[in-house]
């Protein structure tokens, strides 16, 4: 990466590190919900004979607690300030820089997720590990694929939110779109329950045709080594594809948005 990108990532990290109370409060909330979700899933597993949709006890604990951490790292619920800047017209200042706003926002978000990794991921996961005991991956490859999978999840999450932000060029108000997004990314992303419990056809459709599983379910499946190495590689490959697809979509939509802005004004 060039100097500018490194500086932007560092700035993203620094920006979010200035909100200490929010970080602590967020990690605390994630932890509380971690306990809640963990007890529910474990009791479901107990009545169902020890496992849910092919996840055994430690895998379920990992699914919940690492999920609580990944949630903050991907940050899919919090919209980028792009839409707000489009609405107020501040986006013009972004265009007056000799750097593509897409990369500016992406680098900033990567910095943010780096900070979230060190605080809001580590916190809940540590609590979960101490309170319940996490699944320990056996294959060394997992330790390589898991960070990559989380990075892909961050990028896909970013690109989707960037697209929603860009939609403000046409609709100005993105509240409707972003509510739909929050619901879908939670439901179809594997946050509320493992996607494996869904009927086969729906599960397959979600994995193949939507970017949602790439946000949560993908890194969680990699971390609990679901389906062994072939499936983990397949999951990562699908995430990589979604990264490319969504970023490309961002590029195209941004170009159209710019054309509209440049022709019709802010």
């Amino acid at each position: 990466m060039a100097h500018a990108q490194v500086a932007l990532v560092a700035a993203g990290f620094r920006r979010y590190s200035t909100y200490r109370q929010a970080t602590v409060a967020g990690a605390f909330t994630n932890t509380v919900f971690g306990f809640l979700r963990c007890y529910i899933l474990l009791s479901v597993a107990a009545t169902a004979g020890g496992s849910v949709a092919g996840y055994d006890g430690p895998q379920l604990v990992s699914y919940v607690w690492i999920g609580q951490g990944v949630l903050a790292v991907v940050n899919a619920w919090v919209m980028l300030d792009l839409a707000e800047r489009v609405r107020t017209g501040d986006v013009v200042a972004d265009l007056l820089r000799p750097i593509d706003p897409l990369w500016t926002y992406l680098c900033t978000d990567l910095g943010r997720s780096g900070f979230a990794m060190l605080t809001r991921f580590v916190g809940p996961v540590l609590v979960g590990a101490l309170a319940f005991g996490l699944y320990v991956p056996a294959n060394p490859l997992t330790y390589l694929l898991a960070p990559l999978s989380i990075l892909f999840a961050v990028v896909v999450g970013f690109a989707c939110r960037y697209l929603i932000g860009l939609s403000a060029f046409w609709t100005l108000d993105i509240r409707g779109t972003s509510m739909l997004w929050v619901f879908l990314s939670g439901f179809a992303g594997g946050l509320y329950f493992p996607l494996a419990i869904l009927p086969e056809w729906l599960k397959t459709t979600l994995w193949v045709a939507t970017p949602f599983p790439a946000l949560m379910q993908a890194p969680l499946d990699v971390l609990v080594e679901r389906g062994g190495v072939p499936n983990m590689l397949l999951v990562c490959a699908s995430q990589a594809t979604w990264c490319a697809v969504t970023l490309f979509a961002c590029k195209r939509v941004q170009a159209r948005a710019m054309r509209k802005l440049v022709l019709q004004g802010g």
Binding site: A11, R14, R15, Y16, T18, Y19, T88, G89, D90, V92, A93, L96, R97
Partner: peptide
């Protein structure tokens, strides 16, 4: 009426 500075830095 616009800012080019980073609000939180």
């Amino acid at each position: 009426q616009r800012s080019q500075l980073w609000w939180d830095l």
